[in-house]
Design a binder for these strands. Sequence first.
DNA 1: CGCTTGATCTGGAGCGGCTCCAGGTGGGTA
DNA 2: TACCCACCTGGAGCCGCTCCAGATCAAGCG
Lengths: 119, 119
Amino acid sequence: MKISEAAARCGLGIDTIRFYERSGLLPPVARGADGKRRFSPGDVDWLILMASLRETGMPMERMRRFAELYRRGDDSISERRRMLVDHAATLAARRAGLDRCAALLAAKLKRYDDIEKGE
Amino acid sequence: MKISEAAARCGLGIDTIRFYERSGLLPPVARGADGKRRFSPGDVDWLILMASLRETGMPMERMRRFAELYRRGDDSISERRRMLVDHAATLAARRAGLDRCAALLAAKLKRYDDIEKGE
DNA sequence: CGCTTGATCTGGAGCGGCTCCAGGTGGGTA
DNA sequence: TACCCACCTGGAGCCGCTCCAGATCAAGCG
């Protein structure tokens, strides 16, 4: 499929996909006879993974490392597993941060109500 | 209190606090006779709010707007409330994103287990 | 058949949000 | 007196996009 369709499916922008390719986050993407990128469904799965990791705060450096390990094949699975487990832990931390912020907002909103009632 | 203590209490870096002041995200911070910043507990509360909003993805532009409204006093409460309610909605969306990512990671990890067992 | 439209390409500039650094000031201790 | 440390300012640097100019090419159309 074309890059526009891949972008629609993974939620990244077209420019971001090209940027990720330049940055070594993608296995080399095939090109058609016209020189344009052709994405396989597997490419899209990979893009979705990259998008998820990035959106949830994994730095590009670590994503590059992960991509490199992936290229090496099954021997690298134990290290990849470690990376994903680590990242799952940071997800939990982030969620806690979100919850703290939500609580803070709720308290603020309540104070606004009190102020307006008090007038 | 000094900037180092304020930084320790709100979780932001010293440079980030100074940057936020330059950027209009803080009410003007008082200075001692020595020209150094002196933070009140109220300043720290504000920094904690800014840190929470920023960490959870509110753009600086909106934070600046919120700070400006705050300076205007109680008349701006309805707009401030709207901003915080909006932001609470984005928190929920982010949490959903985290959960999707966590599910994806869990699926990947399971596949790794299957691959290693299969060998 | 030539012409326009639209999607893609490349390389590079610009931007948001920090983060770090050089160079300078002033208070506290030995 | 000399040193150390925290703080100051202005500006450069960095990450992760995002946008832009200028070129190419396929498809649709009068």
